[in-house]
Nucleic acid binder design. Sequence first.
DNA 1: AAGATTACCTGAAGGC
DNA 2: TGCCTTCAGGTAATCT
Length: 272
Amino acid sequence: MPELPEVENVALALRAHLTGRRLTDLHIGYEGILRQGARATRKALIGRCIDRVHRHGKYIIINFSDGVQPDSHLMIHLRMTGQIFILDDYIPDKHVHLTFDFEGLPVHYRDVRKFGRLELVDHPEHPSAIAHVGPDMLLVRFREWYGRISHRRAPMKALLLDQGIASGLGNIYVDESLFLAGIHPLTKPVDLDEEDLREVWRISKRVLRNSIKHGGTTFMDFKDFYGKPGNFRSQLKVYGRAGQGCSRCGSTIEGIRIAGRSSCFCPECQPG
DNA sequence: AAGATTACCTGAAGGC
DNA sequence: TGCCTTCAGGTAATCT
């Protein structure tokens, strides 16, 4: 499940492999992935070169230019199961819905559950389509983040997942961040002082940065950069470990539902 | 207003 | 060649 670190690695790979490349064709197997449909998307992109790749939270925005007409901007969100493959010998299966042809270099978009979306947007960094999305979690300063979260009444679990406050954390990194901060997921901002919140902000950023580092080597083989044993998944302290012993204190990790999401925490290390 | 719930999808896992 | 239910989670839409 791509969260900010996985999306960052995809953006890095697209930037490294595709900058300066011209899109010569686009094969579309399932049109539902394209917000504006097949015809408009092909018209906006084919014949143009990629000149920049930008990431905001879990969104990737790719700038296409032909040097004459106004640029086109393609925004990608992988949602749950979106994947991008840049491999000459990759053999597409039934879940590959799009294949971009960059003068012979194929780039495949695969998405088992078809939740992901590619859409044409009006700005290379701040499209109006995501005006409701908050600042990137890696970039947001504490003052701004504090102002956005401190007055809210929902559980910390729900607020860290809320992309309108800051963009990038998903279910896995929220659970991990709250564990490392020693805060129960049902805790509300009103129960915390400013320094507690500063610690959550600091740890969340550290978890994301740490995971970007870990995802790198696994990602670059492009074959299965999600779920490959040996990367950050092996380091998870609480996510997906309900019923198992806490690595810090030995207590049994609990699993509950908050804001419609499974939430794992250690009742001893994260008292509430 | 903002918190909570459901829809969107498919596949894996588990109960029987 | 088993069928059925539940679960997984990011976001938009829809409720309260």
